[in-house]
Nucleic acid binder design. Structure first.
Lengths: 230, 230
DNA sequence: AGTCGTCAAGAGCAGTGCTCTCGTTTTTTG
DNA sequence: CAAAAAACGAGAGCACTGCTCTTGACGACT
């Protein structure tokens, strides 16, 4: 009986996957606003209303794409870090940063969906938060490993007392790491994505051309701020 | 005759301004995607096609709003810096940063229009670039002033030679400032906007609550990276 | 074998950006 | 001052969107 049930569910899963694939392709070429359920249906040879059997609304399709996107960039960063010699923490930081940047440059529209302005009228459901932490978890692990190895030499500028109860999520990612380093890591993390935002969203147009080199240099400065310089 | 000509042009300018005002209000409440020419016309008691006498397309209306937005945030930063004691460079940097952040938090949708994902199908015309540099010009002036006053004590980590021909626009903003400091300023600038992006776009939800304090601390770390720490 | 749920299809609603035409009003020109 | 020209608001209309509802057919489970 499971076979027959699976027969139906298999074609359903297949169609669902085909929808997201086409949607992702449209997203990559047209951007988030150009994603049209009717266009997806048209490309599949379906009628538009049939799509709603699989995704109750456009937002649900967007949510699926967002989750896929977080997992894709998270997997890219995890893979990049796994390929690194684990005891070279500066290299790991730089490699993870480049992985983020390169994925974003290769998938600008998907990146915009994840880290750009929220899609109007769209509220990210809780389902996304599990996938969204994969990249920052890698960063946390790098810093945490570096700290355990005694490779973090940051100036001892204590953050203000108002912040001691903040950023609990980051603390969990970096157990044992003192507040000073945690907040430096948060700063570096926001700087990393700030750069990628600027690059992907065109803020460097006609200004910085060799963006990979410039990004690398900036990430080295951030590593120094974190105390990771060798 | 100029009076009679002005009569018509005056009402035209007035209507144009009313359109942008209503559009800005809709933008603030609904976001960029919710901006509808028909809704603006409806609110003005006009018929939708009449709007096209004033803005040939939705993109042109968006462009007007974008230019206004760049000027608004630029003016806010300029004003904040002007109110500072000009010889306290760390304070000036922090004040300018807080001005950016506070404007962005107060006008999240307008900020998203300026620094978020580009509106799909919309290509920013050249008209915007004049207004868009006002905020970064303030930052450049702060660093430049600090350098002239001998108040910049940054470690002498030279950027790689590939970058010596890059970022000419930044160099013009900071005449006489050496490359090392220029690239540190660029890093700090991207970190500043990276933070604001994360905050405005909801990346700190359920993670960091006292965002002003955390931002301030991060900006102090960036000041140290630039060599502005006192 | 019959029932029940799933499915694709189609029509339809309200909304969008945008174009075109048609009178009217205002400005400019002869 | 009168005629030509330009600007304007209104309306209809096109192609498109997300989404809902209904209808009829096919497949799955008892």
């Amino acid at each position: 009986m499971t076979a027959s049930r699976t027969a139906r569910e298999r074609v359903r899963a297949e169609l669902t996957r085909e929808i997201t694939d086409i949607a992702r392709r449209q997203l990559a070429t047209e951007g988030a606003g150009g994603l049209s359920l009717r266009a997806v249906a048209r490309e599949m040879g379906m009628v538009s209303s049939a799509i709603y059997r699989y995704f109750p609304s456009r937002d649900d399709l967007l949510t699926a794409l967002i989750i896929d996107g977080y997992n894709a960039i998270g997997a890219a960063v995890e893979q990049a870090d796994a390929d690194c010699p684990q005891d070279d923490f500066l290299l790991r930081w730089l490699t993870a940063g480049h992985a983020v940047r390169e994925w974003a440059v290769a998938h600008p529209h998907e990146y915009a969906l994840l880290y750009g302005s929220p899609v109007p009228g769209y509220q990210a459901p809780q389902d996304t938060i599990a996938a969204r932490v994969r990249d920052v978890a890698v960063l946390g692990r790098i810093i945490s490993d570096a700290w355990q190895a005694g490779a973090v030499h940051a100036p001892a500028t204590e953050p203000p007392p108002e912040l001691t109860a903040e950023a609990a999520a980051f603390r969990e990612l970096m157990p044992g790491v003192p507040d000073n380093v945690i907040w430096r890591a948060i700063s570096a993390w926001t700087a990393l994505y700030g750069w990628v935002n600027f690059e992907v969203f065109g803020q460097f147009n006609n200004t910085i051309e060799d963006r990979r080199t410039a990004f690398d240099h900036s990430m080295r400065l951030m590593a120094a701020t974190m105390g990771l310089a060798q």
